[in-house]
Design a protein around this nucleic acid. Structure first.
Lengths: 337, 337
DNA sequence: ACTTTTCGTTGTAGCGCTACAATTTTAGGA
DNA sequence: TCCTAAAATTGTAGCGCTACAACGAAAAGT
């Protein structure tokens, strides 16, 4: 049986194989990938060519084990449904790519899932971990602290796990409230959001109350929805507020999607927006630009949050408990107010 | 200087440390994490407790290197903006979790980014790789073939990289077309989509043409938009079709978002939907359920695609070039047609 | 020509873990 | 009580790579 062992199952390709094929030592191959400038142009070109022909892809795990560092950043997201997070990850990816890092993300919809995602990422020994503010599992904080991996928490305030990065939600809420007051609105309803994501926005309501108080207006018109309701919350909101005060003249919604739902409901009822009632959203989602009337909203520049996260992770130094990085926001007045 | 070395920088914790602290051998610790059933209940509880106290997280890279396999699946997504992909990843995660696997995802918006994401994932030696159909870099196919990592391509047809999994887009398109014809529509416009994602839906138009031909109707009313246009394409579509045929009585849109844009435009113009013109979307997005009138659409059950992808990856065997796995779809007639 | 500097390349050792076989302990019969 | 089978635990070797120090070979001084 001459050919018995010849059934060429493409045995796993190692750096050794590439080295042999290129007639250099394994270390030279390693250097070609990791520190190209250490290798003479000619040698490098040759080695890389051979590697490509063979279809060699360096084993990052082995490299990590040997070197103790990887060039991968891990990000955990609570969901992907929302365009703020989309831009956030885009910011992460751009900033990471500029420094030669890759970003891997894991979705986690519950604190328990988040914990297990963090375990996986820590197990992979990522160079940095980017979390999103929200309710966390109790063990999470201790776990990341013990890991000595740099961690940032996006959309976080003072009490962040790791370092915080985000815009000043309270200031944005205050500015948006002042905008409505300046437009002559007097009976302003505020929609709060309960549950997970709510944590990221807990400063909205107090800031609203403060501004209303300063202007001598009532801050009673507050109701709570679950963010998950999306468009569907619109009817509920308009119903609820009208039942409490027929003459309500403005509504502050927790997201543009909820605000769009509210506007759809106003249309159905023949309530003129912004003639009879103004509606403001939050987050600068696509939909806010497309509906009629266009939606007044707060632009969070989420990509800047992502970029900031990467820079804190990678050059953040040992800033234990350093104060959060504040990114910019912008109140965008449009047709709906 | 007694305390010089006492500045306790929490030196990296290894399995060794846990073993020592728990009074067992490293192998027992390893087994506790990997094959819990091999370890006596009592021992395992004790070891796990010690590990948790110490904040030990096993180094997956080292484990992978030693064992040659990891329990991580890599997924590459072209974007996160769209709720089909959201449900797809949810399906991936559920099915993977049931089998004790984790899913890490990377976003790639261009073929070049996709290639580099695949390199990273292959470098991590993931247990399987889930790709999305679309334009790929030329080197991609060879790279994944050489890697001998199981690969699936979701939304793919016959010519998939690795194995394909997805629903029969042509059949769905035909069924939706027949639905409109059965409703008495005769002058039906078809909106095609150009660019990246278009690839995933290239079977829509031929199927539409076939059905129109069978019914003895004209299939001339075809226009193309870029998917990226989102809501904005609505006006363009309605404008364009009316300019070509004032009596057009139905429009088939490439996504629910585009269809919603078209409905908004019809509302602005006072064109009754479905009275004067029927509008159908594609993809069963949230918005289609929320607008008035609710939108007729095709539900792709994207989570089933994700689940199917995992099962092909993990029990797919050596099915080189096996035929694609076909998942279900459903035409959902609602108010807009 | 001979030393010094600089650059490019190469062995060696070991990162933290797990497969596997060997070993010890425990349970089950006779 | 002793013997065998089964279960639980443990050494050893090595996965593929990179840090580091050592080395050889050109380049630059003297």
């Amino acid at each position: 049986m001459p050919d018995a062992t010849d059934s060429r199952q493409p045995r796993k390709l190692t750096m050794q194989d590439v080295a042999r094929a290129a007639g250099v030592s394994p270390m030279t191959v390693s250097n070609c990938f990791r520190y190209p400038e250490r290798v003479q142009e000619k040698t490098r070109t040759q080695v890389l060519k051979v590697a490509a022909e063979l279809g060699y892809v360096p084993n990052l795990s082995a490299g990590l084990l040997a070197a103790g560092t990887s060039r991968v950043i891990g990000a955990v997201l609570p969901s992907m449904r929302n365009s703020s997070f989309y831009r956030y990850t885009a910011g992460l990816r751009e900033a990471a790519a500029e420094r030669g890092y890759a970003v891997i993300t894991m979705i986690a919809e519950t604190p328990a899932e988040e914990l297990s995602a963090v375990q996986t990422l820590l197990g992979l020994r990522v160079a940095g971990l980017a979390l999103i503010a929200g309710p966390h599992a109790r063990e999470l904080k201790r776990m990341v602290e013990l890991s000595s991996t740099p961690v940032v928490e996006a959309w976080a305030g003072e009490d962040a796990i790791g370092r915080g990065v985000g815009y000043d939600v309270g200031a944005a809420s205050a500015e948006l409230t002042r905008h409505l007051i300046a437009q002559g609105r007097r009976r302003i309803g505020f929609v709060d959001v309960a549950g997970g994501g709510g944590m990221r926005y807990s400063m909205r309501l107090p800031a609203f109350r403060r501004e209303m108080f300063s202007a001598g207006l009532s801050d009673d018109l507050v109701m709570t929805v679950r963010a998950a309701d999306g468009f569907g919350a619109g009817a509920q909101i308009i119903d609820g507020f009208l039942a409490r005060d027929r003459r309500i003249d403005a509504v502050l919604c927790p997201t543009d999607v909820v605000a769009a739902g509210a506007i759809f409901e106003c249309n159905r009822r023949g309530l003129a927006v912004p003639g009879e009632i103004a509606v403001a959203g939050w987050g600068d989602y696509d939909i806010g630009r497309q509906i009629t009337p266009t939606l007044t909203t707060v632009a969070p520049f989420s990509d800047a949050i992502g970029r900031g996260a990467v820079s804190m992770l990678l050059d953040g130094g040992s800033g234990r408990g350093a104060e959060p990085l504040r990114t910019a926001f912008n109140v965008l007045p449009r047709e709906s107010t």
